[in-house]
Design a protein around this nucleic acid. Sequence first.
DNA 1: TCTGGGGTCCTCATCCTT
DNA 2: TCTGAAGGATGAGGACCC
Length: 391
Amino acid sequence: MTPSRPAEPILHVDMDAFYASVEALRDPALAGRPVLVGGLGGRGVVASASYEARVYGIHSAMPMARALRLCPQAVVVSPDFAAYQDVSQRLRELFLSVTPLVEPLSLDEAFLDVGGSERLFGPPEVIGALLRDRIRGELGLPASVGVAPNKHLAKLCSGKAKPEGLLHLRAGEVAAFLGRLPIRDLWGVGEQTAARLERFGLRTVADVAGTAGPTLVRIVGHAAAAQLASLAVGEDRRPVVPYEPAKGMSTEETFDRDVDDPAVLRRELLRLAETIARRLRRGEVAARTLTLKIRYANFATVTRSRTLALPTDHATELHAESAALLDALRLERVRVRLLGLGVANLVPAGAARQLRLLDDDRWQQVERAADVARNRFGDAAVTRAALLDDG
DNA sequence: TCTGGGGTCCTCATCCTT
DNA sequence: TCTGAAGGATGAGGACCC
């Protein structure tokens, strides 16, 4: 006999003001105060704001300078991603103690399918409350939980439950719950899409649900229309997928001041290539496609990409290829605000090495030796001469 | 107001092959 | 040999998410 599945087996667990909460845990003097985690430089933005800071209208992605004008007494803390990663790992272990079906969405939130955990831990809403209490008890942090028939609804519920609440949406309550929500609550509807929908008089989820398919396609295109139509009536067939290999990786840097010196740009590109190459090797993958990203002083952004004949995880090669893309732009002292480098089309490193058997490059050996030294003595142990400060 | 960093996915155009 | 259609790969840009 097949055991029956509960009608609302999906949990979405979302930490409240995650980075700010972790910082308050590390420094109890911050507890109860407006805390902003984010870049301290002139161009930084807020990555996380405590609830005490949100009272002033501050939200994440807001320029730090503006946030401080709204709340001058706020404490600004520089983000420490290693610490957040550490907490995230412990959070994950906690999730895995109730179900193997855990799909992390980011450091601070995850979907859990607890459809098979009922006999051990009780119904989903009981498991949700148990997790929230254990996160508070064992990690000292606040979390909110959504319990619903599918992922999209569970995520909406955790959002409505904040801070530190739990919302259980029963299958029979979906239509009434969704109908009143603004379109911005639908997954995939950001500022642009919302504006487009509003031009056609669509303001609520119920409006979208009542719109004919062909009309939606005309407004937002095929893929988005199909997704919107399903989500608006509470349908979401996506399963909880425990592990998905990364499809790409990237790193970018916004300069404190715009840069117009080609030599500086090339040197920064080498630094980015080093970072990406090390992450590729750590992940035991190699990349075939690389993308150079430039943001000019006026915020206009261009990308240029190139697909290589053979996948690589070598900084020297990534740098040479991306520098060629940079040269092809003929910037001629144009002021650059941001430089980025990304890779995609990832393949397992073993397969990449087989493809490159005849390609015995000494730099490969040098970079691997550098990895060994960095792993043993720290990141600062090995640096290219070209990246050392001149002064 | 003045916009970070790391990702994913979609659309559209172009080129190449069949 | 030429032509056109179809489809895949690639490149660029944009929207969205946390």
